[in-house]
């Protein structure tokens, strides 16, 4: 564990001209490669932080009126790409399991779009996320993270995920910067097509 001092020293500040933060969320099951993808394209070492859900109405007897005791938290990590002197893109790696979706609204507020990462050994892990994204009408692409040899074709994966034909599906190796970059470009092109078709 780094000390706070060395971490502060390692912090890379943004250019003073930066005005606009944008974000893309990478969502997927446990161990699917979310952090690996963030790391491969980020200009900073991925950082982690937490969001909390405070259950209102609890601890009502607490004389201090505090509700911090009844919080649930989810950890997520993030990286950053300075796109130009004004715009900074943040990439968030977020767990896709059902029990974490309480943070959906906050994590996804203002998000450009999402990447759903899937692993063919555990495709079912991504069903819930895909369902939820469709329900919220959040645009997304699906990235199949190749772990070694796979016998699945993209068509088979599309079918197994019951993915609509207009959702782009690509393969990637999240450890490779160019491959992760290509996934993000696929997403942005998809968003561009959707927003100019409007």
């Amino acid at each position: 564990m780094d000390s706070k001092i060395s971490e502060a020293a390692a912090r890379t500040p943004l250019a003073s001209s930066a005005t606009t933060g944008l974000k893309i969320v990478i969502v997927g099951g446990f161990g699917v490669g979310k952090t690996t993808m963030v790391r491969s394209v980020s200009e900073i070492r991925p950082l982690s932080t937490e969001e909390t859900l405070t259950r209102a109405g609890q601890d009502i007897d607490d004389p201090r009126g505090v509700e911090w005791k009844s919080t649930t938290t989810v950890a997520f990590d993030f990286g950053r790409i300075s796109l130009n002197p004004e715009m900074v893109l943040y990439l968030f790696g977020a767990p896709g399991q059902e029990r974490f979706w309480f943070l959906w609204d906050r994590l996804f507020t203002g998000t450009l779009g999402a990447v759903v990462m899937v692993d063919t050994r555990r495709l079912a892990d991504s069903w819930y996320a895909i369902d939820r994204l469709e329900h919220h009408r959040m645009p997304f692409v699906v990235a199949h993270n190749r772990f070694g040899e796979t016998t699945h074709t993209l068509d088979q994966i599309r079918e197994a995920l019951d993915l609509s034909p207009d959702v782009p599906l690509v393969s990637c190796d999240a450890r490779q910067r160019d491959s992760s970059k290509a996934v993000l470009i696929t997403l942005v092109n998809h968003l561009y097509a959707l927003s100019s078709a409007r």
């Binding site: 930066a18 130009n84 715009m87 893109l89 203002g110 993000l184 942005v188």
Partner: peptide, 25 residues
């Protein structure tokens, strides 16, 4: 800075912003 971006009615970002994101990537 930019504390309140356009409310996400359609959720779809502005094409001009997306073009800049694409160039940056």
């Amino acid at each position: 800075r930019n504390p309140r971006p356009a409310p996400a009615e359609s959720r779809l970002p502005d094409p001009d912003v997306l073009r800049q994101v694409l160039v940056g990537l």
